[in-house]
Simulated assay, not measured.
Amino acid sequence: MKITGYRSLHTVHDWGRITGDVNGVQTGNTTPVPVLIIETDSGIEGVGLGAHTDVARVFPAIEGEDPRSVVALYDRMLDWVFKAGHSGATFGTIGAVDMALWDIKAKAAGEPLWRTLGGRERFVPGYASGLEYGLSGPELADLFEQFADRGFKAAKLKGGRDLDRDIPRLEIARDIFSRNARRPAIMLDVNESWNLAQAARNIAAIEERMDLTWIEEPLRRWDAAGMASLRGKVRTAIATGENLTGLEQYRPLLDANAVDIVQVGNVWGITHFLRVATLAHSRDLPVSPVAFNANPVAHAAAAVPNLLTFEVQDLHFPVGLDVDQYFDDGGIILGDRPGLGIIVDESQMSPAGSAPALLARTGPHIRPERAALRLVAEPDIIDVPAVSVRPAL
């Protein structure tokens, strides 16, 4: 079997609502979903999800190769771009290609990827996470009720700008998921919006009101010394790592004992997740993947010994993707369809180059100018509806 070509496609995920975090909120209800198809001479095709803007530069590293040599080809792609480096968009491209190659490998074996990777169980425990920063209190409650109906016992909220807004929202989530667990796990993701002093003060204020399971990305992603210091000041666990690319970026955090929960961005692919999970396991640390469309890394998560929980951002899938998984009992239940279990309906998609450019001036992927430099809570840069606190049950 040989790799012969690729197709780059574009679809969208329709959330039916706005999404965002402390850095900004999307202007509409849909977000782009890049889809990469890797072709072979056997007719088996692999599906990779995620931005792959560097695919023309990376593809020569794998062209003509046997896709089943996926681990070796992952390293070959890293070597191919070594002079310019493998961070950012290039690492995302490698992740999308890697995902497609694993899909081909499992399809060639006639089994789901979780089985190819050595998983014993198809169930992947998860937590609810809706990128819900722009929702009002009642809208937030309605969203999390849908997750609670599927048995979820844990939730993560976005915040970090104003505790008077964040704490009531955390309490809304706690009350909802209390119907499934005596002590539901409630987490807060502030997306690198605090400095060390702010983080220590704000977390202490939250912990006066409720138990917080983890604080996610409280400081800049590379601030190992700061996060190590913060660990000694708060009760909650420190979770970070979703934006790190390559094992070398995790080493300072692990060497400084700066992290309790090692996170991995799904967008970086299967092999990267497996390697980070092994690295974390060597330190007796749990790993938790950060979600992405159709949850492809859930297959790998099912096969590692130190999985803590998997982020689930929505209960639906992008337009044109038929995904063999469903949500129940507080997690993801993977199916038996070979590979990633994703069937692509290309009639509902467009070639990648035909997708309109996103000209957002703000949004969850753009860091605000005054992040971590606000002396007092300020009105948001977006018009977020006031919180309506959910009555006690």
Rank of each mutant, 00 (worst) to 15 (best):
R68M: 03
A280F: 04
D75Y: 13
S350E: 15
D98W: 09
I206N: 09
W268K: 13
A360H: 09
R361W: 09
G134L: 02
F91Y: 14
H281P: 06
Q313Y: 11
F292E: 07
Q198F: 09
E45D: 05
P67D: 09
P289Y: 12
R174Y: 01
E346N: 06
T4Y: 01
D149E: 13
G320H: 14
I203L: 15
S354T: 08
D103R: 03
R179E: 13
L163E: 03
P391K: 03
G137I: 07
E192A: 07
D189R: 01
S178K: 14
A386C: 01
D336L: 10
V290F: 13
A371I: 02
F310C: 10
G241S: 07
T90K: 10
A109V: 09
M77W: 07
D336V: 00
R169C: 05
E65K: 13
D284C: 02
D284R: 10
R235N: 01
A277S: 15
I176N: 12
T93L: 11
A225E: 08
N293E: 10
I261R: 08
F59E: 07
A185L: 06
R182N: 02
E208N: 13
G50I: 11
L244C: 08
A301Y: 02
R183P: 00
I38T: 04
R374V: 02
G330P: 01
G92A: 10
T90R: 15
G331C: 06
H316G: 05
L274D: 08
G341R: 11
A100R: 05
R251W: 06
D14H: 08
G130A: 15
E39A: 13
F82K: 15
F327K: 10
H86W: 15
L113A: 14
A228E: 00
V25Y: 14
V35L: 14
S136Q: 04
L307E: 12
W194I: 14
R337Y: 13
N180A: 00
G265V: 00
G232V: 00
D66C: 05
P67Q: 01
G134H: 04
E216M: 09
Y127L: 08
D189A: 10
A371N: 05
T53L: 11
V319A: 15
A148E: 03
I62H: 05
P286L: 09
P34I: 11
Q26M: 07
V264T: 06
L140F: 13
L321G: 01
A96G: 10
V384Q: 08
A199H: 05
G335M: 06
V58K: 03
I238S: 02
I332M: 13
I167L: 13
G335L: 06
V35E: 07
A200L: 06
